[in-house]
């Protein structure tokens, strides 16, 4: 990229921000605001993280959590896209349901857990239910809004060139909506990940010790270094998915379509 030659490397800037955050944390520890067994220093926590990373159980926990995240998110994308397309097809549905969708989106997903537990007991079903409900409205809304912003000329050109019905949706509407839709997918992921973390803290499935389970155990045992180490894992996964997956997709789309200033 041209931009990187004039401005400092983004990785360097990110590293500096991270170092500042860790320094602030260390300053709070030094101030003696809380005893060190409640608020351990960054070094203690990173050493614990390093120890955890040598155990297979560490990777199993991440694996269990990621499987839930990916399957819940995939379902949310499917339901979100399908409901957006239905609303696009049937105007009446959109005028009645669209407001409800925005309402759902603004609802904290933890609110769904009591109902989910009643319906599905303390199990995978309850977690999946809340993850899907938390994520799909953002995805559906994101797709609807990006479709609203497609230049009408592309649609007219698509029709002139022989795309009708489903073919028009698949070959014009969806690809044309993509740059905006990635934003909706990203927001959907953020909601899915939050709902999943809330779910894993509330619904403990003992034969599948996931990240949430490990966090709960750490709190019950008052093991602050363990707790903070797992929080760093949660932060790391969130940043990795956002920074590597979504930002890469976004960049690729923008470069391909000439949406970058050079």
């Amino acid at each position: 990229m041209q931009a990187s030659s004039s401005t400092p490397s983004p990785w360097l800037a990110r590293l500096a921000a991270l170092a500042t955050a860790i320094l602030l944390w260390q300053v709070v520890v030094w101030s003696g605001w809380k005893p060190v067994w409640l608020l351990p220093s960054p070094l203690t926590v990173f050493l614990r993280l390093a120890t955890l990373a040598t155990e297979p159980a560490f990777y199993w926990a991440i694996f269990y959590t990621l499987v839930r995240a990916v399957s819940g998110y995939a379902m949310a994308v499917g339901i979100g896209v399908a409901s957006a397309l239905l609303m696009l097809r049937f105007r009446l549905l959109r005028t009645t349901v669209a407001g409800l969708l925005t309402g759902l989106q603004s609802m904290p997903s933890v609110i769904w857990f009591p109902l989910a537990i009643l319906l599905f007991q303390l199990g995978e079903g309850a977690i999946l239910f809340v993850v899907v409900l938390g994520a799909f409205p953002s995805i559906a809304n994101g797709l609807l809004h990006s479709i609203d912003h497609i230049p009408p000329l592309w649609i007219r050109a698509g029709k002139m060139l022989g795309a009708r019905g489903w073919s028009l949706v698949a070959h014009v509407y969806l690809p044309a909506a993509m740059p905006g839709f990635v934003g909706g997918l990203k927001q959907g992921w953020a909601f899915a990940w939050r709902s999943l973390m809330a779910g894993e803290l509330l619904v403990i499935i003992s034969d599948r010790p996931s990240i949430g389970t490990r966090l709960s155990f750490a709190r019950e045992l008052s093991d602050a270094p363990d707790l903070l180490a797992w929080m760093i894992v949660v932060l790391g996964i969130g940043m990795l998915v956002d920074g590597l997956l979504f930002s890469t997709i976004e960049r690729r789309i923008r470069i391909k379509r000439g949406l970058f200033e050079t």
């Binding site: 002139m160 690809p175 044309a176 391909k256 000439g258």
Partner: peptide, 13 residues
């Protein structure tokens, strides 16, 4: 067939 003032090419292709 029809052509417009704007080429209306699809930027994703």
């Amino acid at each position: 067939a029809m052509m417009f003032q704007d080429p209306a090419l699809f930027p994703w292709l």
